[in-house]
Design a protein around this nucleic acid. Structure first.
Lengths: 255, 255
DNA sequence: GCAATCCAGTTGTCTGACAACTTCGCAGCA
DNA sequence: TGCTGCGAAGTTGTCAGACAACTGGATTGC
């Protein structure tokens, strides 16, 4: 006979009984996604759903609670549950699986361009001497990484964080910290691209110097332009061409 | 005596009883965010939580279900509920207590100005006819709210969401949806300010029209400028003066 | 020493009931 | 006719108690 340990593994692996509420919420999610229940329409009442799926009302409530948390459904006591017109509080998940698809990467680069250029501009207006020192410090760290051939993506992250900190707005700083975890994936590409023979990090570093110079000199428009161009080039380095209309950088230039 | 209609409005406005499960999930979220329960640690068992908060186990389960949906908590039947080691969707927490302090509000308005103006610009470049229809729809919804004197903050949120959707970049759209929860607090101020005698919502609505016109006409620079000015005025309406250096709007103008 | 079993504790599900709330229709009235 | 107020029916929110399914550690037996 099997030991307890094996039985447990066996149980976990094979007979992984899915939660009823999961099945129900997935089923409902599918119905909504397929348009069988359209935005603004009312879901069947809990009792009816319970009979349909052959489960208790508690399970239905838990399933609907998940859809509520995802912002796909809104409930009004006494009225019913309705498919949300505009999903309100979607979880800010970047990708579901292991990594982003190419089209998603393009959109991420667009977002980066938008946010980072705005932040660079604000940083150029507000930076204090201490901020300049901090940013320069990480710039040198990337120089060292380049010289030794090691991975400088961490210093890269820190460099952009330091710029965000120079805005002296805790919310922008925290937003960049938050997004940073996702952006760093797109930055890491530049440092760990096979072979690094294309001199990709060197290019990026040159752009970093331009951004730093503009921020340090207190030139907002230039900081915005260089930051925007940096993201644009970073995208091209991994084979993604950003649409020409893109974002705010060009407006600031007004050329 | 009040008519039914009035009673309903009154009820909606004032006696907005919060759901128990909401209160509990927010409280738990806070405990996790403040590190009172660290990643990997087990939450108190449902029965204990029920006693602590003085509610039934069903409410606790619903609250935990929301945290599960957010990826902050994982449950294992028979073992317990645990704070997730790697939160799937990080929580970008804006304030801990009931609301932001004044200095925080100022920073939030700055962030709003930065993000919303960039998004308005991109929306003006990319919007399709269907987007214009959607945005206009929420603009009218706010008109109706103004006419009836009811709370139009929801339509206000939707208006800005629709603009974000018009960028046709799923990440910017999701970021705005995500931040929207927090921004909506600062928007609600305009609609629920005591008495509304200062004609605050009317002012805001006029600004909304300018933004809409620019986006609909496909004029990025104008959209950015009006959006930026809108946030700036919104801040002033609640008594906050944004620093003159502020953000990207002025660079786009280049006046 | 080790495998099998047991047991207390925990989450998952079920059932039934009541409270709070919304919606709609109807009777009453001007 | 138009509207007002009331109430009934329907729906979600909350409560309480029970049992099932599962986990992790302690105990037992060899």
């Amino acid at each position: 006979m099997l030991t307890n340990e094996l039985k447990r593994i066996e149980t976990k692996r094979i007979v992984r009984r899915p939660r009823l509420s999961e099945e129900v919420s997935i089923a409902l999610e599918g119905q909504i996604a397929r348009g069988e229940i359209k935005p603004g329409e009312q879901l069947p009442v809990e009792k009816a759903l319970a009979e349909t799926f052959g489960v208790s009302r508690a399970v239905i409530r838990e399933a609907v609670a998940r859809l509520k948390a995802d912002g796909r459904v809104e409930t009004r006591q006494g009225a019913g549950a309705f498919v949300a017109l505009v999903p309100k509080s979607l979880n800010f998940r970047f990708w579901q699986g292991d990594g982003p698809a190419l089209v998603e990467l393009r959109e991420i680069f667009e977002l980066r361009a938008m946010i980072e250029s705005s932040i660079a501009e604000l940083a150029a207006r507000r930076r204090l001497p201490a901020d300049i020192v901090a940013i320069e410090c990480f710039l040198h760290a990337m120089d060292d990484a380049l010289a030794s051939g090691s991975d400088g993506s961490e210093a890269d992250d820190d460099f952009h964080l330091a710029i965000a900190a120079a805005t002296h707005n805790s919310y922008t700083r925290r937003l960049v910290e938050f997004l940073g975890r996702h952006f760093s994936e797109s930055r890491r590409l530049a440092w760990t691209m096979p072979g690094r023979n294309g001199a990709l990090p060197e290019e990026a570093q040159a752009e970093h110097r331009l951004i730093f110079a503009a921020v340090a000199a207190g030139e907002p428009a230039r900081a915005r332009r260089h930051s925007h161009e940096h993201v644009r080039c970073a995208a091209r380095r991994v084979g993604i061409v950003l649409a020409d209309d893109l974002v705010s950088g060009r407006a600031a230039e007004r050329r």
